[in-house]
C-alpha cells in the first residue's frame, strides 16, 4: 500500500505585508529578550524554561508571518531536533560532572562563587550553565513541536478522489 501524496499545507507565502513588516521589527527584540532571560536567569526572574519559550515564540512568529519556508530556512527541523537532544544530554553531563569530576553527588554545584562575584553574570556555579542548556533545549523542542504539529497536514485535494470518498464514508 503506497502512502498518499502529502504536501506542505503552507506554500510559503505567509501573511500580509503589514504583518511581515511588524515581524521584521519585532523578531530581534523578542529574540534578544529571550536570550537575556536565559543568560540572567539566576539574577532576575526568568530562567531556562521561560527564556526558551520566548526564543521559540520568536521563531514561531517568523514562521507564521513569513511562511513555512522562511521559518524552516532559519531554523531547520534537523537542527532543532539535534539541539533538543544535545540540550538534554549536556544537562545530564553537567549533573554527572558533579559526581565524576568534583567527586560529590549528582548535580553538585562544583563551581564556587566568590563573595565579590555575587549579583554578576558569572556567578552561581552550574546554575547559569544549566539555564543556558535548558534554554537551548526548550526553545528547539517547542519550535520542533510547533512545526511538526502545524506544518504537515493531509488536505483533501492532495489525497485523490478515492481517499476522499473513503474518508467521507468513515465519517458518516
Amino acid at each position: 500500500m503506497s502512502a498518499p501524496p502529502r504536501r506542505l499545507r503552507d506554500r510559503g507565502t505567509g501573511m500580509s505585508m503589514t504583518v511581515k513588516t511588524v515581524m521584521r521589527w519585532l523578531k530581534g527584540p523578542i529574540l534578544l529578550f529571550g536570550i537575556y532571560m536565559v543568560l540572567y536567569g539566576h539574577i532576575t526572574p526568568g530562567g531556562g524554561f521561560g527564556g526558551g519559550v520566548v526564543i521559540a515564540s520568536a521563531f514561531v512568529l517568523i514562521t507564521l508571518a513569513a511562511g513555512q519556508k522562511e521559518g524552516l530556512r532559519i531554523f531547520p527541523l534537523g537542527m532543532a531536533s539535534r539541539l533538543d537532544s544535545a540540550g538534554l544530554l549536556l544537562f545530564l553531563v553537567i549533573g554527572w560532572l558533579g559526581t565524576w569530576w568534583a567527586g560529590g553527588y549528582f548535580f553538585e554545584n562544583y563551581i564556587p562563587t566568590a563573595e565579590t562575584a555575587r549579583f554578576s553574570l558569572f556567578s552561581g556555579g552550574i546554575i547559569p550553565l544549566g539555564n543556558l542548556v535548558l534554554g537551548l533545549k526548550v526553545a528547539s523542542a517547542l519550535f520542533l513541536v510547533f512545526t511538526v504539529l502545524t506544518a504537515f497536514h493531509i488536505t483533501d485535494e492532495l489525497l485523490g478522489e478515492t481517499e476522499v470518498q473513503q474518508r467521507q464514508e468513515d465519517k458518516s
Binding site: 555575587r118 552561581g124 546554575i127
Partner: peptide, 21 residues
C-alpha cells in the same frame, strides 16, 4: 550556598535539579 540571587532558579537548578531533569 549557590551564589544565585534569584532563589527560584537556585531551587530549580541546584537544590531541586533532579526535578528539573
Amino acid at each position: 550556598e549557590t551564589g544565585a540571587p534569584n532563589l527560584v532558579t537556585a531551587v530549580l537548578l541546584d537544590f531541586r535539579a533532579w526535578d528539573t531533569l
